[in-house]
Structure formats: structure tokens, C-alpha cells
Amino acid sequence: MTSPAFEAIAVTDLAKRYPDGTEAVHGVSFSVDCGEIVGLVGPNGAGKSTVLNMLATLVTSTSGAAHVFGISVSDRAAVRPLLGVALQATGLDPLMTVRDHFAVHAALYGLPAKAAATRAGELLDVFQLGPTRERRAGELSGGTQRRVSLALSLLHRPRALVFDEPTVGLDPAVRRGLWELLEDLRSQGLAVLFSTHYMDEADRLCQRIELLSGGRIVASGTPEELKARVATGGLRLRIRDGADRAEAALGLAADHGILRSRGIPTVHDGVIDVEAEPGRTSISGLISILEEFGIEVVDLHWREGSLDDVFVRLADGTADEEPLPSVMTEHRVLARRGGHRRGGPRP
């Protein structure tokens, strides 16, 4: 097993300009260590697949460098056995059976027939593909085809995995099964790089996330760091009455610098949602102002930040550059306040 600290994939200033002049990737740099799962996330057309295809040796880069275990990807013959790749297209021949696919894949990777058969049997079990062994790929559902594709990518025991949206089309149970498998492979020391649109998946699996937008990495870090950076989540207040005065009260709080909100607060069905910044909001001050407006707060808590917010904010470039305090774990700061009401100005 490789040392967990060993750098498996290293990408430096990688760029790709297509023959039609499209600049798909501009100077992307990142690395993936052994025993690490790194997620490439970003909107459609961000350049994720291009980066993965360059790493997988399918597409040549215009400039920059990419290395797999210290070997340049330009040395295709040396790099390819080290990588297990599953692309967006499953790449299965609809007329071939699942068993034939394993046989062809084993032959292409030069695996001895007996060892390949044993390994194929293991993978068919892991991916629950045993009953489909003799069926043609064209007869399988999209999710099953994807499972076959992922199983094939592991047949030759690669040391690093490059997956392009591996869980698209999988049902929740199979998706969770794949997560467990990836975590298992990571624990065995494999390096895993994958792209995804599912932020819950990236949050659950990735040690680090590289967020691409417009062919550039716009943010990089652990899921927690990214969520902290954009101060995702917010403040949710449940009020008993006085909803009609809430906007004015929140406006006053903002004017006094008590509430630092990124968006416009919403008041709906007795609930106020404020995209507040945890480190810049005075909870006690906010409650005081609300009470001065005769608004009784019965419940208040921080809503946990999500990577969806990170994706939306950073991918369109609206995030602050300055890192913000990390106060992400949902915690209740006020369970229930007494129903006393202070007199005060009413708008």
C-alpha cells in the first residue's frame, strides 16, 4: 500500500484550448494525495470533464503539466495502467455481454486470464452485477450500465481513480453503496478524483473540493473551509406575532450594524429567514430590537451551511474574498424565550 501522504495526482497550470478556439481550462493547479478523495465541482461547462479527460490521457493539454505518481500524462503507456477511469458515457458496447466487457477490458490491460476472471468475480459481487453477467449491455438499465462501467475501471487494480460524475443515474441505495466503496478504496490508499453535481455527495466524501468556474479554480479547500468562507447558512427566527413589523425591525438592525445579512430577509408563516453572517451578527442585539418592535421571538437557531450555497455563490463569483469565521454546526442559541414583552416604539 502506498503511503497516505504520497502525492498521486499533481496538476500544474493545466490549460486547454480546443481547435475551435474555445478556452476550456485556464491554468488549473491542484493535487490529490494517496488515501484522499478530491471532488471537482462546478457548473456545466466549467471545464471539469476537460480536466479529467486530460488527466486520463484522452485529451492533450495546450500548456501546463499533469503527473500521475510522478509520471507525466504525456507518457500515456506508463500512466494508463495506474489509472482507473470512468467517464460520463459508460462506454459499453450494447451488443456485448457484461462478461465479454470484462474479458475485453482484461485483455486490453494485459491481465492474465485466470487472475482477471477471479478479479471480475469479486467486482461483480461488489457491484451486485452477478445476475447480469450474461446479459448484453444494451439490455441493462442506465444505472446498471454505470455500475458495470465503474466495476470495469477497477478491474486492473489501479492506484488512482478518475471518475466523471460517477453517481449520475444511480438510485439512492446504489449511490450510497458506491460512496461506501469509494471510502473503502480511499482507506486502502487509493487516490480518488471525481466530478459531481451532487453537493451532498461532495460534502460527504471529499477531503478537499476544487470548485471550477469558467475553466478556473475559484475556490479550494475542505468542505468546512468552503462553507465557512462564504458564510453559508443563516439565522432562522420563529416569531409568535408582529410579522408585519419584522421587516422594519430587521432594517433597523441592519442600519445599526447589528445584523449583517447578504440577502433580503424573508418573512413567511411566522418564520424569518436571514442570510446572516455568524461572526458579524449580534444575536442579543437583534432580539432586543425585535422585542422593541413588539415581536416575540419563540425560537432562533443557525441553519447549517451547505455546499449548495457555496456552489451558487462561488461559481458565479459573488462570494467575499475574505474568509469568514466557521460557525457552521447547527446549534440552537435560543431555545425558547419567555413571553414577556417590552414596551417600545411601534412603526
Partner: peptide, 9 residues
């Protein structure tokens, strides 16, 4: 692409 990805090409 699947064949292109293999060492034999």
C-alpha cells in the same frame, strides 16, 4: 474512449 484509456490503445 474505453479502448483509448487502456495501455494498448
Amino acid at each position: 474512449d474505453r479502448m483509448e484509456l487502456s495501455p494498448l490503445g
